[in-house]
Design a protein around this nucleic acid. Sequence first.
DNA 1: TTGCTCCTCACGTCACGTGAGGTGGC
DNA 2: TTGCTCCTCACGTCACGTGAGGTGGC
Lengths: 180, 180
Amino acid sequence: MGMEADKLTVGILARQSGLSRSALLYYDRLGLLKSRRRSRANYRIYSAADAERLNQVLVYRRMGIPLEEIKTLLEDAGRSRTAEILQRRLQILGREILELRRQQDSIVKMLSQKPLQKEAEVINKDRWVQIMEAAGLSDDDMHNWHVQFEKMEPDAHQEFLESLGIEPAEINRIRAACRK
Amino acid sequence: MGMEADKLTVGILARQSGLSRSALLYYDRLGLLKSRRRSRANYRIYSAADAERLNQVLVYRRMGIPLEEIKTLLEDAGRSRTAEILQRRLQILGREILELRRQQDSIVKMLSQKPLQKEAEVINKDRWVQIMEAAGLSDDDMHNWHVQFEKMEPDAHQEFLESLGIEPAEINRIRAACRK
DNA sequence: TTGCTCCTCACGTCACGTGAGGTGGC
DNA sequence: TTGCTCCTCACGTCACGTGAGGTGGC
């Protein structure tokens, strides 16, 4: 009886894997990770093999692959469909990142164009850089964004830079750097 | 009676806006875009003002802002909370893009390491470039990826390049370019 | 007896898509 | 009468989170 104390129950496995209990219960219902044994009290008891399978699940989960496809992957002993599924996910990721970039761009454009506060809480250069950095845009991203802005709407770009209170001389430098 | 023929019904507005009927019905239920009038047959009749409001909705939707927040935004006549909401979305986008990049990376690493096909269907350089391009990775992205790979696991990078059937001399050139 | 973990439903999430079953309009 | 558009439920999606109500284990 004391022998069951070190068995893998949901809670233990959850802590070990970093997943939630409810996630593991869900995987059980899906058939992605079944616990074959139960204790006398009807507790789920996972085996070492189950824990190993869970590690595989986690690998694919970190790639953002849907649970149903992970099932396929784990059954695909011959690896005949593995590369295909990974490549498909890679394509979807490409499209999703593109879409999110477009969304970033729309927001940055709106933030840069309107004096959004009635109170005219002036956004200066430092504040602007701070916002962009908080959004995870690297220096490279910011440069690219200036280049795009300059190419698409040079006048708005000029106005935007003025609105940040940047000196005319520096504005000219920035815009020139965008065009070369 | 013929006068009602040119009124904006759901179907018409759907076609004009590029949304689906069911999306518009959903917005109605949410209170995001209500049609105030109904025809004798209980059809929804949208006004020009409604159509204008829908345009605003679409602007924010393209930023990926949740519908409930779009409601707030459209009620925020004083623009007091607008900048705040946009900046928050920008931060979330930054995190989401980072996460998707991590997912890309995991997949690329797995595709590059294992000979995934038992059949040894050799993946050569052209095929590899093709996969990466299909995934939306630009030349810059691919260069960055090589640099990271070289820095983190130089031996695996060497093996990977060999597995693509690239000449030793070119491999050396590629790896050198990554380190400088 | 007290806590802690476990169990099984069942409903909620977000932005719709998809029928089912039925009624006006031209 | 035939099609087309419209109407209102109501259920499904994806990966869980969150109770509710109840039972073992130490």
